[in-house]
Each structure stands twice: as structure tokens, then as C-alpha cells.
């Protein structure tokens, strides 16, 4: 009795409040992850999905994937996709946030318009970009040609060397608003007095940015980059609609390749192994994020 009472002390009552959410997560997220893990250690194909025995084959699926050139390419593509999207989105997002911090006329409506990429469904964006990157009738080749930058039309989506660039470009466009919003919010938390006193001390714009803005934005930037990483790393629809992983498997990401293995080629276990690799990488990044936010809270 005493024990129960002591459990409901102030410290522990918080755990109790979190319990329903925790149970929900355990059931709807924990269970699928575990079952996916089990699936990846078995040998499930068309012949034994519904009936027959499912043999445990240990890590054979993972070993097989490590020797699969398409998987390795997908792995590389996913990293390339994530890093290049993150860097460019972040730089452009930061620049836009700084721009909209200044109160010029039309700043507000223009900032509102900036949110549009974020609001359009991903598949619609992907289709629009697919048209824009089309070789013969695409507007991008038209502009490049009109500007005299190219003489021959570039085969954006039909050549393995350029398709990835096209997909990354489209995804960067989508991610900019997310970066702009979070950085704008972060900027408003910096007290204006700091800039004023710096101005009195004779600091120039660049010094203000590197000595005041950036250091004070550190936690915002860290969370932003980690969240951005998670969002970008798991992108699926963009690539599925624009190229379907092609041409010649050159644009497969871990997500699209895992889908292809499971639902187009009926290699269910292999597909779930690929998905698990994706999950493990995201979990690692998640731990980093956790560290950052916890540290922030402690401060």
C-alpha cells in the first residue's frame, strides 16, 4: 500500500500521464517494427507468404543486400539526396528568413506565398516537376536554351547521370519553406538589444551575423538539421512519381527500393530488410536529436 502510494508521488505521476500515449505507440508503432524485424530474418516470398513454413535464415537477407549493387546505389543515393537537399534548403531558407526579417512592403503577403510549396501535395509537385524536366517540351530546357546555356536539350529524367539532379532539385523546392519558418521563429527569440549594443560598439553587419545571430541560433539550427534529415531521408512519393527509381535504377532511394522489392518483386523479407536499414539509420539520427533537445532543456 505504502509502495503504491509512494509510486503516485509527484515525480512519477508524469509517467502515468504519458502512459496512454506510450501504450498507443507500443501497439501501433512498436508492434509493426518488431514484426518487420522478424520478417527480415525470415525467408518470405510468394511461396510462403500465406501458407507454408517461414524459415529463419538469420542475417542472410542483410548480407544479400550488401552484395546487391542496386541496394548500395540506393544507399548512396539516399545519403546524397539527403545531404544535398539539407545543405541547399538550409542556406536558401536562412537567406529568406533574414530577408523577411526586414519589414519591407509586401513582406507579409510574400512570406505567405512562400508557404505554397509546403502546402501542395507531394505527388502534385512531383508531376509538375516531371513535366518541367521533360526533354523536348519541358520549360527548364526551354529556358536554358533561350538563355544560351545549352545547345542540345538535356535528357534530365531519361539519362541516369542527370535524373538524380532533377529529383533533388524538386525536393529542395519543397523543403525551403520548412527551413524558412523554423529559422524565422528562431530569429525572433534573439533580443534586439543585443544588436543595438553591438551597433553602438561599432560592429558591422557581418560581425553581427557571425557573433550574435549564429551562436544564439545554434540549438534551432541543430534541431532543424536533424528534423530535416529525418524528413528528407524517408522521402518516397517524390521519387516514385518522378522516376519510379529509374532510369536503370539510378534514382532508387532506400524507401523506393524497399517498396519495389516487397510489392513489385514479391521479395517480402528482402524488402523489409531494406526498410530496416532505413529505420536504423533514422534511429541513430534520432538519438542525436534527443541529445540536443535534452541538453537544451537542461540549459
Amino acid at each position: 500500500m505504502k509502495r503504491i502510494k509512494s509510486f503516485f508521488r509527484y515525480d512519477n505521476i508524469g509517467l502515468l500521464y504519458a502512459l496512454p500515449a506510450f501504450l498507443y505507440m507500443l501497439f501501433f508503432v512498436g508492434y509493426p517494427i518488431v514484426s518487420n524485424l522478424i520478417l527480415s530474418l525470415q525467408n518470405v516470398t510468394v511461396r510462403n507468404l500465406v501458407r507454408g513454413s517461414r524459415d529463419f535464415i538469420g542475417f542472410d537477407n542483410y548480407i544479400k543486400l550488401m552484395h546487391d549493387p542496386v541496394f548500395l546505389r540506393a544507399m548512396f543515393n539516399t545519403l546524397l539526396f539527403t545531404v544535398s537537399c539539407l545543405v541547399v534548403q538550409f542556406v536558401i531558407g536562412f537567406a529568406l528568413a533574414l530577408l523577411f526579417q526586414k519589414d519591407f512592403s509586401f513582406a507579409r503577403p510574400v512570406r505567405g506565398l512562400l508557404m505554397i510549396p509546403w502546402m501542395i501535395p507531394m505527388t502534385v509537385t512531383a508531376l509538375i516537376f516531371k513535366f518541367m524536366f521533360s526533354t523536348d517540351v519541358g520549360i527548364i530546357n526551354y529556358f536554358l536554351k533561350s538563355a544560351g546555356l545549352i545547345t542540345e536539350n538535356i535528357q534530365w529524367l531519361t539519362s541516369p547521370s542527370t535524373a538524380m539532379t532533377a529529383v533533388i532539385t524538386a525536393n529542395i523546392w519543397i523543403g525551403i519553406p520548412f527551413n524558412t519558418i523554423l529559422i524565422s521563429t528562431g530569429l525572433t527569440t534573439i533580443p534586439l538589444e543585443l544588436y543595438e549594443s553591438a551597433a553602438i560598439d561599432g560592429a558591422n553587419g557581418r560581425q553581427k551575423f557571425f557573433k550574435i545571430t549564429l551562436p544564439l541560433m545554434r540549438t534551432t539550427i541543430e534541431s532543424l538539421l536533424v528534423l530535416g534529415f529525418i524528413y528528407t531521408f524517408k522521402v518516397y512519393d517524390m521519387v516514385y512519381v518522378m522516376t519510379g527509381g529509374g532510369p536503370v535504377n539510378s534514382t532508387h532511394l532506400l524507401s523506393t527500393y524497399s517498396y519495389k522489392l516487397s510489392f513489385e518483386m514479391f521479395q517480402y523479407s528482402l524488402g523489409s530488410s531494406a526498410a530496416n536499414v532505413l529505420l536504423v539509420i533514422l534511429l541513430l539520427v534520432g538519438v542525436v536529436y534527443l541529445k540536443i533537445t535534452m541538453k537544451g532543456e537542461m540549459e
Binding site: 507531394m122 512519393d237 516514385y240 523489409s272
Partner: peptide
């Protein structure tokens, strides 16, 4: 995080692989 991996794209027609598996 699992939720992030598995969810949130149900409105878009194309469904992520992990999600479908979930």
C-alpha cells in the same frame, strides 16, 4: 520517430514502403 517513418503520407496516394508494411 517510428511514427515519422511510418506515417503522415496517407493523403498523397503513393504510400511509403515502410508505411505499407506497418
Amino acid at each position: 520517430l517510428g511514427g515519422a517513418v511510418t506515417g503522415c503520407s496517407s493523403g498523397s496516394g503513393a504510400v511509403s514502403a515502410t508505411e505499407s508494411k506497418t
